[in-house]
């Protein structure tokens, strides 16, 4: 009846940004997984004679100031931060999903307490929270995982709670409950399809945030400890030699950029 009814459904093209994002991420993943198989080598082996020298077959990206192969350090760094980030996002996502649905379904004091906790965490700068946890477990991947999970779950919690509350109040859920369906069915059939796309977006953004946080803390020497190959740490170690070896400095920068761009494109291209 309304003018809107007859509008044809928008022609759905291929979501280009999502395709490009996935390709970028696949490239990075392939480098991280297969890099040391294609060119075998050790990211920790030093040979000071080769310090800051250019690429050669055994070290396709040249050597750093201690004569370590930048290629192999990069391959290892690209395994480390994404793995920590993915673990943190998985933990945070699960926690946020469970607590968010609990708050939405139960309401009352459980809801108020969880919202208050989430708001309190949101008021703290995220990096500060990670630093506090890292102060207890300095320089470890587990410390990063715990700290980042603690920061990231709030976003998942808030999204889940808001969407679940709305869905639970809908006539569709009321009808299902009247017909005798239990909470498991309501969650699986009504709630999850509504929040799943949002969760994917939040997970991609969360992963990007986590990778950036690990790199940022590495860059200011409070994250992973040398000699661990880590993106931020590599950048700060190579920074003094930017004049002699610009490509050496640019390698971790470009790798980080490609990784974050891929994640952002993947996250940001949700239709409408």
């Amino acid at each position: 009846m309304s003018a809107l009814d007859i509008h044809a459904a928008p022609r759905r093209g291929l979501p280009w940004s999502r395709v490009i994002g996935s390709v970028l991420l696949l490239m990075v993943a392939a480098l991280a997984a297969l890099g040391s198989l294609v060119v075998p080598g050790d990211p920790f082996a030093q040979s000071l004679a080769k310090a800051l020298s250019g690429p050669e077959p055994a070290a396709p990206l040249g050597y750093d100031h201690l004569g370590r192969s930048i290629y192999h350090r990069l391959v290892h760094a690209l395994r480390l931060s994404p793995l920590i980030a993915l673990a943190a996002v998985a933990t945070a996502g699960a926690a946020g999903l469970i607590l968010g649905s609990l708050a939405a379904a139960r309401g009352g004091w459980i809801d108020r307490a969880l919202v208050m906790l989430a708001d309190a965490l949101l008021a703290l700068p995220g990096l500060l929270l990670v630093l506090i946890v890292l102060a207890m477990m300095p320089g470890t991947a587990v410390g990063f995982w715990a700290g980042l999970s603690l920061v990231l779950w709030v976003e998942f919690f808030r999204l889940t709670r808001a969407a679940t509350r709305e869905t639970l109040a809908s006539p569709a859920v009321q009808a299902s409950r009247l017909l005798g369906f239990g909470p498991a069915y309501v969650f699986r059939i009504h709630v999850w399809p509504e929040i799943a796309p949002m969760m994917l977006t939040a997970a991609a953004f969360g992963t990007a945030t986590a990778i950036m946080a690990i790199a940022a803390l590495g860059f200011v020497y409070v994250g992973m400890r040398a000699p661990a190959p880590e993106l931020g740490l590599m950048m700060v170690e190579l920074l003094p030699y930017w004049r002699e070896a610009p490509m050496a400095l640019l390698s971790p920068v470009i790798a980080t950029f490609v990784l974050l761009l891929g994640l952002t494109l993947l996250a940001g291209s949700r239709e409408q």
Partner: peptide, 26 residues
């Protein structure tokens, strides 16, 4: 569960992303 309701907007009363057949099988 013998006391049931029919809604003004039936679209809003069904799971949005599930086929009608599946909903009825459920």
């Amino acid at each position: 569960f013998a006391f049931q309701k029919l809604y003004q907007d039936p679209v809003a009363a069904f799971p949005r992303k599930r086929s009608l057949g599946k909903t009825l099988q459920d």
